[in-house]
């Protein structure tokens, strides 16, 4: 199979151009909001909270905060990227172009994931100004970053295809992803919860992401790191399957 590389490049460049055109909302504002978390939870409140798992609270929340941004931004970038042409009607061009589903997805998801990665790295750098942290397993840290950006950009892509209004586009990130992320152990270790809620929490997929990511920083985690890797790979496989189905059937794209 030969890939239409010009097409992948065209979509990727087009989407990245959109990012840089909207630099304020796509890069700067998430960095600012994360900085605010650091100021409030890390410096102000964090100084009164004892260490968690032997790590200062300010440092403890860094992996969770990065995951929080990575998740929400990946979803919103990718969903917006494919929803806009659907909404404006310019999707006709994508549908009539000599490109396959694989190329379309690489272009859109690749651009959204790249943007999230840039953002993740920027937040990591920003965090340095507020707290000291260490990264014990840099390779795994990078792997978690890339896998999460990729997986949730795919999830966002699915969302963008499913959504038929701006309202619906917002509903899943606001009503499902936000709560899951907040309750996913970004700001606390799940061992701090009562036993019943610890069990409930294990059904939250975000717990595995945050836990694995935190392990790559500090070597300690709520759940086994293998489990974290499996969870994210499983979700990646699920998203891939759904996208395959979408293009096979033309769901919400073609009649």
């Amino acid at each position: 199979m030969t890939l239409n590389l010009h097409a992948i490049r065209a979509i990727y460049v087009f989407e990245m151009a959109r990012t840089f055109r909207t630099l304020m909302q796509s890069i700067i504002s998430p960095v600012i909001s994360t900085s605010l978390y650091f100021v409030v939870f890390g410096a102000a409140i964090g100084s009164r909270i004892q260490e968690v798992d032997g790590i200062s609270y300010g440092a403890f929340i860094i992996p969770g905060l990065i995951m929080l941004s990575l998740l929400t931004e990946s979803i919103s970038n990718a969903s917006f990227g494919i929803y806009m042409p659907k909404y404006s009607g310019t999707i006709y061009e994508i549908l009539s172009a000599p490109i396959s589903a694989v190329e379309t997805v690489i272009g859109y998801v690749g651009a959204a994931a790249t943007k999230s990665l840039i953002l993740g790295v920027l937040i990591l750098i920003t965090a340095r100004f507020f707290v000291d942290y260490e990264i014990q397993h840099p390779f795994w840290m990078a792997a978690f970053l890339v896998l999460t950006a990729l997986t949730f950009s795919m999830f966002g892509f699915i969302l963008g295809i499913w959504a038929d209004s701006f309202e619906r586009l917002q509903v899943v990130p606001l009503l499902i992803v936000m709560p899951l992320t907040f309750l996913g152990g970004s700001f606390y270790s799940i061992t701090m919860l009562p036993p019943f809620w610890q069990t409930v929490t294990l059904f939250n997929p975000v717990v595995y992401l945050v836990s694995g990511f935190r392990w790559s920083f500090y070597g300690s985690s709520d759940v086994g790191v293998e489990l974290s890797v499996l969870a994210i790979l499983g979700f990646l496989a699920l998203c891939t399957g759904i996208i395959w189905y979408i293009f096979r059937t033309g769901y919400r794209l073609k009649v």
């Binding site: 490049r9 979509i11 009607g89 006709y92 994508i94 172009a97 000599p98």
Partner: peptide, 20 residues
């Protein structure tokens, strides 16, 4: 149906790339 926020030349170049 047009990509409203793009420049004319960018949107035309995009189409060329899309068609390989």
């Amino acid at each position: 149906t047009v990509e409203s926020f793009e420049s004319v030349i960018a949107t035309v170049k995009f189409s060329r790339g899309l068609f390989g």
